[in-house]
Simulated scan of single mutants.
Amino acid sequence: MRIRATVAAVTGALALSALAVPAAQAADVSGVSGADYREAVAKIRQAAHTPSGATAFSTKAAQDEPYALDASFSNFKIAKAVKVGTTGHYSTTVTYTLTHGADVDITAQDFLTGPYLYRGAFATPDTTLFGVKPATCTTATATTATCTGKIDIYPGEGDLLNSDSGTWKGAALAIAYNGQDPEGETFDITKVGYADQGALGTTLVQRNSKLTVNAAPEPVQKNKTLTVTGKLTRANWETGKYAGYSTQPVVLQFRKAGTTNYTNVKGIKTNTTGDLKTTVKASVDGYYRFQFKGTPTTPAVTTAGDYADVR
């Protein structure tokens, strides 16, 4: 779930309609009736941080703030990159260590923890991405546990803007509801414990790329000109389609028939619509392919080889 930062005050029952989650993605929070995990944690997180960037919650909770839960996070591990297309569901698994005070019951039905990603300042992020379910934890010692959770992304439902591609920071949170139901009329947030921690790691959330190649004519006479064309495209999260990636360096490679290794032939760049076109002299049978090495916003991609029959 992509959640944009707001500066509105969070009061009462934390009624933030902007944080609503499509029912198709909803995952009920165990022990918290009627609440969706992503919506619930986003509300508690926003209540715990002030717009100024300072952490609002403390060991003695103020009105409309959770109290500081005795919990911290370490050993955060996530994939180096998450390639996201235009539709469907994408996820990446995160593992981390949860360390907590002896008085924190992480086995309680309404204790929740999970990883998330954010861009911008930790306390006032530009946007965040959560999982649809909380993490699961295995007790290691009386005060530590190893946890595994996921970050879930639905690009077709507005989770990402094109400008969101690039580096995201990793974080983790924990909530002890202590019997409080956030959907109930008597919900008291000051009795809810909350802890979170940012800058635990980084990952790239990238606009998935596609690349094509075609060598023509087929067959081609020996020592005649062979034209190799193709197109480099990447996901546009805002239109739900793939679009040409302009002025990007791509390498044409060749593998002689009967061999296994490709060698570089020449480097070219895509035009303003992502198209590729170059020529070579046909000398022997073999396979031509294009290779794009990628950028922080767009993953590397290599085509399969296109066979050229030289006669």
Rank of each mutant, 00 (worst) to 15 (best):
A176W: 00
E183I: 01
G12L: 02
T247C: 15
G158D: 05
K266S: 14
Q109W: 09
G179M: 01
Q25N: 15
T139P: 05
A135P: 01
T55A: 13
A54F: 11
T167H: 12
E157I: 03
K269P: 07
E185S: 12
V301E: 12
Y118Q: 04
T127R: 10
S163L: 11
A26I: 04
L173Y: 07
D103R: 03
K210Q: 15
Y288Q: 06
R289D: 09
G158V: 00
H49E: 08
L226C: 14
V82A: 13
L129P: 03
A300F: 03
L117H: 00
T279S: 14
T136R: 09
V84G: 00
K191A: 05
A121P: 02
K133L: 13
T202Y: 10
D188G: 08
Y118G: 07
K222I: 15
A304K: 13
T87F: 09
G53H: 06
Q291E: 15
K191L: 06
D152V: 00
Y262M: 05
L211I: 13
H49C: 05
T93R: 07
C137V: 02
S246V: 12
F130L: 02
A40Y: 04
Q291F: 11
G114S: 10
A54E: 15
V228T: 13
A135Q: 02
T273N: 14
L173N: 06
A195L: 04
A56W: 08
Y307H: 14
Q63I: 09
Q221F: 13
G240K: 08
K231F: 08
S165D: 11
A20K: 12
K231D: 10
I153Q: 03
R45Y: 11
C147I: 15
T186D: 15
V205L: 04
T59C: 11
Y90E: 12
Q291I: 14
H49L: 08
T146Q: 07
A35P: 07
D188I: 02
V301D: 02
Q25M: 10
T113W: 00
V280P: 00
R119V: 10
K277P: 04
T148W: 05
A243Q: 11
Y194K: 01
V265L: 04
K150H: 13
A8P: 06
G166Y: 03
K224T: 10
T278E: 15
A108M: 05
Y242I: 09
P125G: 06
V213R: 01
G114C: 05
T97F: 04
L129C: 08
F57W: 12
A282W: 00
D196N: 13
A123V: 13
C137K: 03
A121L: 14
T273M: 13
R38G: 06
T303Y: 09
I78L: 14
K169T: 04
N271M: 12
T86N: 11
T278P: 02
A300T: 05
I3A: 09
K231Q: 15
D159M: 08
T298H: 05
A56R: 07
F292E: 00
T190G: 08
K133G: 06
Y96G: 00
L211Y: 05
K133C: 04
T146F: 02
K169D: 06
T139A: 15
V104F: 00
P296E: 15
R4K: 08
T263P: 08
G149I: 08
T167A: 14
N75V: 09
G101A: 04
Q291N: 15
G114P: 02
T92C: 11
L211A: 03
C137S: 07
A13Q: 15
